[in-house]
Design a protein around this nucleic acid. Structure first.
Lengths: 249, 249
DNA sequence: CAAACTCGAGAGCAGTGCTCTCTGTTGAGA
DNA sequence: TCTCAACAGAGAGCACTGCTCTCGAGTTTG
């Protein structure tokens, strides 16, 4: 637990604004470096062979060290997985954030963020599976992962908030989500913005769609269904944006 | 491969209409029985501990036989997994089919099928993960699984077809899926019914939503988001049905 | 400088999938 | 009816996994 959170913070170092204890002694520096090296090797093996093939022993072999030594840095395989999960959540979140130009029109921002999420997922399918696939049995996500998991959906929410602020968020008629289906805390997703239960529901559904449609493409459920995956994806992005109340076209 | 298909057919025996070679000799009967017993034990362990914990050896232990003996019935762990996958696809498909009353109104049928799929998934979360979660690395789904995977979505398509036949399928305005994004073969999902590319896309999206929203509920992504999961699910079902063109309310 | 802490290595345990060989049994053709 | 091939089970064994423990060597700190 102790090591896990430390490692997660190391991964998040560029985001983490809390008390940063910079490595001072040579040993501390070496430790930080080796931790990063182990994580990098694990990531490499994840990219090549997927989650199930990822083993602490093979990581240790790749780095030329005894498997038992790796346990000095990651207390368990789950710990290593947690670090990779945090890394993946952060990357897709920052890909989304990075593609979002707050000065652009909401519809353009929406499409750009969706495309960025898809692009990252296509280039990192094992990492996508790690965060949006079946949870690893017995693995309980530490709280730190919950935080970074929100970066991507919050980017979507921010766009909706901007549109709403300008009076450009007008959801189409249709079944309205009953207010009591949404928890009150969720109505304030962003600090200064408030959404109605219906808007919140539509946001959740949009996020769910983004994750789901990428998953379908990645897992082959769309094989023999779509002729042009990118085109179908763009259509889905617009449909979902329109469903939320953005004004496409 | 040989054993795998045989086992899959055994699972599908109640559906399979091809050449049925009924077991004649005592040995053949014993083989069929033991195969079923192994599968049942595997299913039990899957329900209790999930995919990763499922091992041929523990199944063998539970049945009091040597692990090597199990290999006479399932050529590999993947083979056993395939049988479980076929079983799960079939079950959720038949749950959907069973909940569908062709005599009822399309909107009622739609909601009933969605609820049935959710109910099955909530009661069989590990099985759900097996078929809609991350594909097992290295595991390539044999063709037999593709067939049974279609039962559930085809049930949805059948409802849409019925509504269309009666002139009650009127999709709302919104971004229309460009025809070239959908493969031509998909335009005829059912034997005698033809859908437009846009209708096909909406069907695919509805199926994707059904799977996706159940996954979110199962994997805890909706925790702290929805206050009433069943209510939110019903809302989603209606929204997606309306998006397809069904007339709710 | 000595004590406390840290780190790497190696052995070892219990588990896994899977293969191979060895028996006994069953079933079908001569 | 007898024979022989196919089949079924058991056990040993291989290579792998996650993880623990101990035992020295090196580093940091009081």
């Amino acid at each position: 637990m102790h090591i896990a959170v430390d490692n997660a913070r190391a991964v998040l170092s560029f985001r983490y604004t809390g008390p940063m204890n910079a490595p001072k002694t040579a040993r501390e520096r070496a430790r930080a470096e080796l931790t990063a090296e182990i994580l990098a090797a694990a990531r490499r093996q994840l990219r090549e062979s997927g989650t199930a093939q990822l083993s602490l022993r093979s990581v240790a072999r790749e780095l030329g060290m005894a498997s038992s030594a790796v346990y000095r840095y990651f207390a368990s395989r789950d710990d290593l997985l947690t670090a990779l999960i945090v890394q993946a959540y952060t990357e897709i979140g920052e890909a989304a954030e990075g593609a979002d130009d707050p000065g652009a029109a909401p519809e353009e921002r929406w499409l750009a963020v969706w495309r960025a999420a898809r692009a990252w997922s296509l280039g990192n399918r094992h990492e996508y599976a790690l965060i949006f696939g079946t949870p690893v049995p017995g693995y309980v996500a530490p709280h730190i992962t919950v935080e970074v998991a929100g970066i991507m959906p919050l980017t979507l929410a921010r766009i909706a908030a901007a549109a709403k602020r300008d009076g450009n968020l007008t959801p189409p008629a249709g079944p309205v989500c009953p207010p009591e289906a949404i928890t009150p805390e969720m109505l304030v997703l962003l600090e200064d913005e408030a959404f109605t239960p219906d808007e919140t529901a539509r946001l959740i559904l949009a996020w769910n769609r983004l994750v789901g449609i990428i998953g379908y493409e990645l897992h082959g459920h769309l094989a023999n269904v779509t002729a042009d995956d990118a085109l179908f994806f763009d259509h889905t992005a617009r449909t979902e944006g329109a469903q939320l109340g953005l004004a496409f076209r």
